[in-house]
Write a protein that binds this DNA or RNA. Structure first.
Lengths: 211, 211
DNA sequence: GTCTATACAACGATAGAC
DNA sequence: GTCTATCGTTGTATAGAC
């Protein structure tokens, strides 16, 4: 059998552990090589497993990739809460931006895989974008409009505000190569990271007139 | 001879024309498939040339890719002028953002190839980033600091302001798939594009206190 | 200068021993 | 459940006819 059902608790446990290790390694490799550039050998090495093992736990390379994308989407939906009209705009947005920055820096590879997937036309997660993400944006846009009616937020297009925040925060993961090159450092330091958060929150919140 | 020197004006003219066609096609294909996913066959088809022709004008696939990157860098350096301390911050920044937006929308594929290259760690253009782009940023940061001393700009980190502007404008090229999915449209319309420019300039300029 | 035919390498996937 | 050996495909690059 190629994809045996778990027949005992211990087998299932090994399976789960191995799959998690493979997905973690795959995320790293897909992030630096892209889907087509990624080699099963490299993923196997990164995971510390023999290559044949990968295709024992997953049917194909594409299957691994889909699982990685799935995992990323679930993490993001879970980590980024909703914003409600009852929240104070300044607090809520500051928290959202900080959470997004934090995620970009804690899982830069997830962010990069996601970015490449979208640049390539989102062949795998396109449906998610058009359904779940669209719903989420429509709801948040409604909240922004309520704030605007109350005069608590400048009159700018709500979805485009979200695009701006996403872009500004993700760039610290996706484009870290460019950022370190321009800053002339090896790695984005803790101090530089703080400057980044301050700049993004400062410009965006002042720009939206929420304070 | 594999890469013959042009022996007459007309040969040279054909050569130049063919190379330009190949580079244009390559930019399109690299943008949607990435370097590794791109196939010489697909580039040839896109260029309307026989496949063997590509490797007659360029030594290898990597050579084509390098030429595409080179072309993109030159375009960008040429199209985006400098900002001088003598300029009025509001005008100068508005013009810069508009130019950057315009470029992202006129050559989205160039933007995407550039993005993927950086996400992959900038193996080809890394030197350019650390040298030319760094110099440019250092110079512009100086201008921003002068404005800040005059009280014409909020006290935020100059390089991070540039990262923010780059991210916000490039997202309309690189992430257009996500944007159209969320907005529920086929293509970013002229009207939506105007909203995008207004939102980015509005939030950034107000956020920087230049007006 | 153009194109066909092919050499050669790399990789994903599988079969089957242990 | 693990691993080796190998198949078949695909894609870059080249040799050589026209």
């Amino acid at each position: 059998m190629k994809q045996p059902a778990a027949t005992s608790k211990s087998e299932s446990r090994i399976r789960t552990e191995r799959q998690a290790r493979i997905l973690k390694a795959a995320e790293t490799v897909f992030a630096r090589r892209g889907f087509n550039g990624a080699r099963l050998m490299e993923i196997a090495a990164e995971a510390g497993l023999p290559k044949a093992n990968l295709l024992y736990y997953f049917r194909s390379k594409e299957d691994i990739y889909r699982a990685v994308c799935q995992d990323i989407l679930e993490t993001w939906l879970g980590a980024l809460g909703d914003i409600s009209a009852a929240d104070k705009p300044d607090d809520a947005l500051r928290k959202y931006i900080e959470a997004k920055m934090d995620l970009s820096l804690k899982r830069p590879n997830a962010s990069r895989v996601f970015a490449m997937e979208i640049i390539s036309g989102a062949p795998v997660i396109g449906d998610y974008l058009a359904r779940d993400l669209k719903d989420w944006v429509d709801k948040q846009a409604g909240v922004f409009r309520i704030w605007q009616e109350r005069g608590e937020m400048a009159e700018v297009s709500p979805p485009h505000v979200l695009f701006l925040i996403w872009a500004a925060t993700q760039t610290y993961a996706d484009f870290s190569t460019q950022i370190t090159a321009v800053l002339g450092c090896e790695k984005i330091s803790r101090n530089e990271y703080k400057k980044a958060v301050d700049t993004v929150t400062g410009v965006v919140l002042r720009g939206l007139g929420t304070r």
